[in-house]
Simulated assay, not measured.
Amino acid sequence: MSPEDAGDPATVPAGLTPPVRVALARPVDRMPRGSGLAYEPKFDGHRMVILRYAGEKVLLQARSGRIVTAAFPDLAEAARRLPPGTVLDGEVVVWHEGRTDFAAVQTRAMATPARAPALARRLPASYAAFDLLAEGGTDLRGKRYAVRRERLVAVLGPLGPPLQPVPMTTDPEEAATWYETLPASGVEGLVVKRLDHTYRGGVRHWEKLRHTDTRDAVVVGYTGPPQRPSALVVVVPDDDTPLLSQPLAPALRITAGKAIGEVPREGAEEGTVTGAGVGEVPYTRLAPELTAEVSWGTTRLHHLVTVLRLRAAE
């Protein structure tokens, strides 16, 4: 980094004050090829921005803008080893028996400050960083991805786990091998970026290739009676915003009711969720112990989530 680029190393750049808008990816149905492309594995976890201030101050921000520092004390402690003025973008994952476990990530994300330390010991989190937004107090979002990637590896290399850069290759054949072999570890696809692109928060200028059009989601609530819920409220990988599913099929309502009855609940805490075409809808919260396979679509304004089956019911 040249002297003229240097910012104030004691803080993060003013333009990266939370909530930080993250760059997004649009789905594609075949692997992009060509010169100037970089390929990264797509981890199914929770998107997180890490902001390292001066002194001991660290903030962990979810994609929605929610501050989740208290829920991840292990990552907050690790982030204090970063140089002040560092801002990272990446994915939180929890490994279980050699695979990423999204339900475990959601359990961590929903932890109260009182429960978070015990969960951190039982379900330790890892952070797969895929971009460096600031270094030494200097905003790097206007730099090319190739430059940001080089600096990302330089910053995280000396630290080691649980903060690590995601693997990256510019070789499409190696990327194709990743795409075919990594699903065994819970990695469901690739993210493709241009080496000469800047970082554009809120813009879908990356591309993502997934193996299927379905995703595993964690059930965090339901609408209607618990014995025959009308719809489920789910959280999908890479986003912490609860989503209301489309109305459940009759048979699935019965199956979901039986599964919900087995989830321990302390009281019946209520929340609200925005549904496509119906606005704000009240729902009953659940502990994140059920996983559903969902199909995923979008309209101009909304995500459309259809529950195909409950994993826990099999």
Score class of each variant (00 low, 15 high):
R30W: 06
M31K: 02
G34P: 06
S35D: 14
S35P: 00
S35R: 14
L37M: 10
L37R: 10
L37F: 08
Y39H: 08
E40M: 12
F43Q: 03
D44Q: 05
R47F: 00
R47W: 00
M48Q: 12
I50E: 00
L51A: 15
Y53D: 06
A54R: 14
A54W: 01
A54M: 00
G55K: 11
E56A: 15
E56S: 14
V58A: 06
L59S: 11
L60Y: 05
L60V: 04
S64H: 08
G65N: 10
G65A: 11
R66W: 02
R66I: 02
A71P: 01
A71R: 10
F72W: 14
P73G: 10
P73C: 08
D74H: 11
D74R: 05
L75Y: 06
E77W: 00
E77F: 00
A79P: 03
L82E: 02
P83R: 09
P84T: 11
G85Y: 01
G85N: 04
V87T: 03
D89P: 07
G90T: 02
F102M: 08
F102C: 09
T107G: 14
M110E: 15
A111N: 01
T112M: 00
P113Q: 09
R115Y: 01
A118C: 00
L119N: 08
L123T: 10
A125S: 15
Y127N: 10
Y127C: 11
Y127I: 08
A128H: 12
D131P: 02
L132W: 03
E135R: 14
D139V: 09
R141H: 09
R141Y: 08
A146F: 03
V147T: 15
P158T: 12
L159Q: 10
